[in-house]
Design a protein around this nucleic acid. Structure first.
Lengths: 225, 225
DNA sequence: TTGACATTCAAACGATCGTTTAATACAAAC
DNA sequence: GTTTGTATTAAACGATCGTTTGAATGTCAA
């Protein structure tokens, strides 16, 4: 998209600010660092956005939210290609939209880091994140999955499951270095694809599904103890 | 434990520094803020720890790691009470050690926030976190669960499953405000207990287990579509 | 009482922070 | 050509940052 430096100062500031805020967090980035990266004058942030905090909020309004819409659109687009998507198709489409499609690698790191910072460390921007993206996304997925579950399904448990799917997606993105360290495994495209497979099978069948073997549950314990 | 203010300056600094670093992050906390909270002189940090970064590392070495050992001990203790623990007992013991036992609420928030900051934003301390805690904990759980799975189990998939369990535990702690917002549900003790139940059943059976109904898998889809 | 050592203290250091100011450049409108 | 308004610039503002200093404590051993 707007990968090459935009020709106007305001957009260049937004772009570089997003990169730096995602990398280091609000407090650890100085306006001098941002304006230098954006090849603009030190006073440019205060001229275009009033102050540093307002620039941070504008990053969410003008860059983060639109990209989140893109992820949602990609998710729905993938699903609409399938004729009769089941639950595992939905989970796969959701994980893929976040971890593979819809964004470049840099955008993804940006996007998820910014989101995580607001989750762990909420500022004013958390209201934007929740009301514009997280809540609608939950609604989407819940209403997609619900028909394929028993009518007696506990709505709270379903919502917690959606949070669990999101937790895995976020974790395997932001904790990449640690996952790589512990598993002694480079986080390349092949591995990422296996991670998505894992998220889908773990979501569908839990730890009993990790071997691709179904209906073995209940047997294993007595056999091996 | 050391909840009331320790009588020596060094420990008071460590305690207040941990609280503040967990709340705001390294860059957002000033040494003046820490020394004021610890009722000590501005120069105390540099006298006792050399500099601010070394204080941060000492927090991990002298407070975070010991508490992590406590969590691990609690986990093993809970398991040893059971005569023949199965996989779900292990997952429950693990989630409980993190989310209910072994720590006060304040300590838990501290502990998980500090860990998360190192996962998202590694400093020197990430080496301590991984080598002293995350890797040994993975080893513990993997070797506990492995015997109750088929011999043909894929070790990579098992490790990814353990990461997934950890991701849920972390998420339901650090994203509490967002979970509460989206579900319109106060994060009280009853709810937390249901969250632990969810983590266990989701880990055991995935989304098909969320209703507490087992062995319905494979039926639901055809019936409702 | 004296000396040695560990700790605390007020004060100041230079550096960097976010923000403001006033002058300047440049375009389109009249 | 003058005016008007927007955008950019260099320079400086006061505040706060992490760190250092040297004097003032308190505490034991000799």
């Amino acid at each position: 998209m707007t990968n090459p430096a935009p020709d106007n100062t305001r957009d260049r500031l937004l772009m570089q600010a997003e990169l730096l805020f995602a990398q280091k967090g609000f407090a650890a980035v100085s306006v001098r660092e941002i304006t230098a990266a954006a090849d603009s004058n030190l006073a440019a942030i205060n001229y275009h956005f009033g102050n540093k905090m307002n620039l941070y909020l504008s990053v969410f309004k003008e860059r983060w939210v639109p990209r989140a819409y893109g992820v949602r659109k990609f998710f729905k687009g993938t699903l609409s290609e399938k004729s009769n998507p089941d639950t595992s198709d939905m989970v796969r489409a959701f994980a893929t939209a976040f971890l593979e499609g819809a964004m470049t690698e840099d955008e993804r790191r940006c996007h998820i880091n910014l989101m995580l910072r607001e989750l762990t460390h909420p500022t004013e921007a958390v209201n934007i994140v929740v009301s514009e993206v997280i809540r609608p996304m939950h609604h989407d997925i819940r209403e997609l999955i619900r028909p394929s579950l028993p009518e007696t399904v506990n709505l709270e448990q379903l919502t917690l499951s959606i949070f669990s799917i999101i937790s895995m997606i976020l974790y395997f993105e932001f904790a990449r270095p640690v996952v790589s360290l512990v598993m002694n495994q480079e986080f390349d495209l092949q591995f990422k694809s296996r991670v998505i497979d894992h998220i889908v099978s773990f979501t569908m069948d839990g730890i009993n599904g990790i071997n691709g073997i179904k209906d073995i549950r209940g047997l294993t314990k007595e056999e091996t103890v």
